[in-house]
């Protein structure tokens, strides 16, 4: 079941100093000493994670712990914040994403992102999905585009619900449908990686269940990194989990191991409800 099998190289449990460096065989994303600064304030301290391919990785931790900040490093969304500064090294398929030769726009097409609040464009459902492929020139001709939109919506599990009203505004859908539309939009640009920043926090339990189901399906073909506040969700959908705490990546491992046998005191406290 767990595709990205994980072996712990070392586990340092000293309270504030360092994070656990874990080694994944053939990882999709590797991070080395990633630090993020907002102005003078450091938000992330030396994060080292190797994220396995074709699996769901959860980032959990209390609010303000830096998990979203780390997520936004992967597709360099932090670049859009003027005061943000990222140091360290992140590689996707052994390609440094901070390489000056790498086009950040292309990176973001290859690393799709789904946000906390469903944010479809105020355009039709079709236009929402078609926008990415169109600006990147992924398809030639109208039929190809229509087919790509249909498959993307199909994969996002939305096709059946919207196929009759594909030219109606995407903002007219329900919250859960909007979020799945955003997922369809993200996968339409044919990314390898999908980043999800608390994708279910604005959804009701039924919509959440659908999105979770979708994630588990999608990880057959995509590498998914999800930030979540819900530990139950992390347990349900993810194979590996990283626990963040005030800017440090405290512990990283198999989801099962993190939730059943956390090594670090802080992880234990958080998971067993002593804080957070």
């Amino acid at each position: 079941m767990v595709k990205g099998s994980l072996t712990m190289d070392q586990q340092v449990v000293s309270p504030e100093t360092t994070t656990i460096r874990s080694v994944v065989e053939n990882p999709k994303i590797t991070s080395k000493d990633v630090c993020v600064f907002y102005g003078d304030k450091q938000a992330l301290f030396d994060v080292n994670i190797d994220i396995p391919r074709f699996a769901v990785t959860s980032l959990i931790g209390p609010s303000g712990c830096g998990k979203s900040t780390y997520l936004r490093c992967i597709n360099r969304m932090n670049d859009t914040i003027p005061i943000a500064r990222v140091t360290g090294e992140i590689k996707i398929d052994n390609q440094d994403i901070h390489d000056p030769d790498l086009d950040v726009v292309e990176l973001r097409a290859r690393v799709g992102m789904v946000f906390q609040k469903p944010n479809p464009f105020p355009k039709s459902i079709f236009e929402n999905v078609a926008y990415g492929p169109r600006i990147h020139g992924l398809v030639k001709g109208k039929t190809d585009l229509e087919e790509l939109v249909a498959t993307s919506l199909e994969r996002a599990g939305l096709w059946g619900e919207v196929k009759d009203r594909i030219h109606e505004p995407g903002t007219g859908l329900s919250g859960g449908q909007q979020q799945r539309l955003c997922i369809a939009r993200a996968i339409a640009t044919k990314p390898d990686i999908i980043l999800m920043d608390e994708p279910c926090s604005a959804l009701d339990p039924i919509a959440t269940a659908k999105v979770e189901e979708l994630m588990m399906e999608l990880c057959e073909n995509y590498t998914i990194v999800i930030v979540t506040h819900s530990m139950a969700q992390a347990q349900r959908v993810s194979q590996t989990t990283a626990f963040f705490h005030i800017g440090y990546m405290v512990e990283y491992g198999d989801t099962k191991q993190i939730f059943e046998d956390p090594q670090d005191k802080r992880t234990q406290d958080y998971i067993f409800g002593r804080f957070g």
């Binding site: 597709n75 969304m77 973001r108 097409a109 290859r110 992102m113 789904v114 944010n119 464009f121 939009r185």
Partner: peptide, 27 residues
């Protein structure tokens, strides 16, 4: 214009001018 629209556009790999011309200015 809500920042979520800019993020959404950036998220699918729109460049800065595409974000402006396709999304922010029309809104």
């Amino acid at each position: 214009v809500p920042p979520s629209i800019r993020e959404a556009a950036l998220g699918v790999g729109a460049s800065k001018h595409q974000v402006m011309l396709h999304h922010v200015l029309p809104l």
